[in-house]
Design a protein around this nucleic acid. Structure first.
Lengths: 239, 239
DNA sequence: CCTCCTGTTTGCGCTCGCGCAAAGACAACG
DNA sequence: CGTTGTCTTTGCGCGAGCGCAAACAGGAGG
């Protein structure tokens, strides 16, 4: 409630889902939403919950995690402000396939899935934006699949870090900081390995001056070096 | 040309993309398509080609494969009649992210991407069907991701076979045949391992009577046994 | 019927990376 | 300012699965 309606409305215009919508349409869509705030570490929803709401993140950051039957966990993706989440379930399934946990105090707008489906019928633009978003997701997932299936651990970790830099990198004194509380465990879950291997790898990289690490903190000092590892440029061409 | 137009039109009604469309709409959409036939082992398109066409498979079977920069390959998915393919690129990107190779002599209908986008605007039903399809794809991919990241090779292979059974299993005398020329290499690419390991695993399973294997051929004799491996029921509960 | 080609099997050694266990470091809190 | 809990590091051993090399089918075509 601290922010005015019109501020939210302005933010909505920048949400991928509502790109290229007229101000009039936005003004009609916005009141259909409810605001939902959640503190750090609290959940918007849990894996398996009935999927009746569709979310667009307005502020904060959200982790989407998935649990395997045998107690293993994977960090699927990080939601940034402006992105939608909870949509896969709402549009396909009946239950959320993942849990959404706030990594920071977060605020999201929610619509009922019925409302969203109606919106899509009456506003083709919204449907097309959704399709665009989903197509991109599919491609990203295929990419990750390929990595998991064919690449060694070190390269996968490098890819994960680079992806995180792109998503939430912030320039700092001596490099790019991943602006996010990020444990070794988190990185392990994103790259399909164990926290031990992540720890060892990051320390080796620190030796080489590629990164600078701390508790739940990673700073990339030499992005090019990381790219070289990710793309397997075994020996830099300049030698 | 051997099949009449009305036969194709009838088949179209069953394509996921055109579910719940009126006969009138279908009759308008169908003439916008072109037919494209391709012999076994030939390609509909190659990875990297400009993505100007959108496909719906009418007959045959198509393999979608993706190449890594270091020469590795992965078999992404198998297209069955009625399914769309080439859509991710058409809806998001400019280039096909994978190659489409016919596993049998195959026929597909094609639309220009522009045409499809227009269709989606004028027929929300088509857009919603697409969204539904994409949402499902995303979920499947997330599932495979999780498997690749957390499961051992044997379980992954089991999952792949079960998925193939679901997609193109045909009842036979002594079990369910995967009705498809399927090499060890193919299985390896789908489960993120090597043809050697696949060969060893399948032979071990044959010993136990779970499967029966031949050249590019897999017959599942004991589906329950496979499920047990896939779900890691280390000891069957009935013992 | 023999030959070729492509797919498959199998032996063998080796490496990557897992994962326990235990110690170390950092932040928060009383 | 110690205590506690969480996160991280590191030693160590081991096992899964990779991947070369070479032998082995089995179907197609002459």
């Amino acid at each position: 409630m601290s922010e005015s309606n019109s501020a939210w409305l302005e933010a909505l215009r920048h949400a991928e889902l509502f790109h290229n919508l007229s101000a009039a349409d936005l003004a009609k869509i916005y009141p259909l939403a409810r605001t939902r705030q959640v503190e750090r570490d609290a959940f918007f929803f849990h894996q398996g919950d009935a999927a009746d709401l569709f979310y667009v993140l307005m502020a904060g950051q959200v982790k989407l995690t998935q649990l395997t039957s045998d107690g293993n966990q994977q960090l699927m993706r990080l939601i940034q402000p402006g992105e939608m989440f909870g949509g896969i379930a709402a549009l396909g399934n009946a239950a959320y396939p993942a849990s959404a946990q706030a990594a920071q105090d977060s605020t999201a707008l929610t619509w009922h899935t019925d409302t969203i489906l109606q919106l899509m019928e009456t506003h083709p633009r919204v449907a097309l934006n959704t399709i665009h978003h989903l197509a991109q997701r599919v491609q990203e997932l295929q990419q990750r699949n390929l990595e998991l299936a064919t690449e060694r651990v070190e390269r996968r970790i490098a890819h994960v870090l680079l992806r995180l830099v792109r998503a939430s990198g912030r320039k700092a004194e001596t490099g790019i900081l991943i602006d996010f509380p990020l444990s070794r465990q988190d990185i392990a879950e994103m790259s399909g390995t164990t926290l031990y291997t992540v720890s060892r790898t990051l320390n080796a990289w620190q030796q080489k001056g590629l990164v600078e690490i701390g508790r739940e903190r990673v700073l990339i000092c030499n992005p090019h070096g990381l790219v070289a590892i990710a793309e397997d440029l075994t020996l830099p061409p300049h030698a």
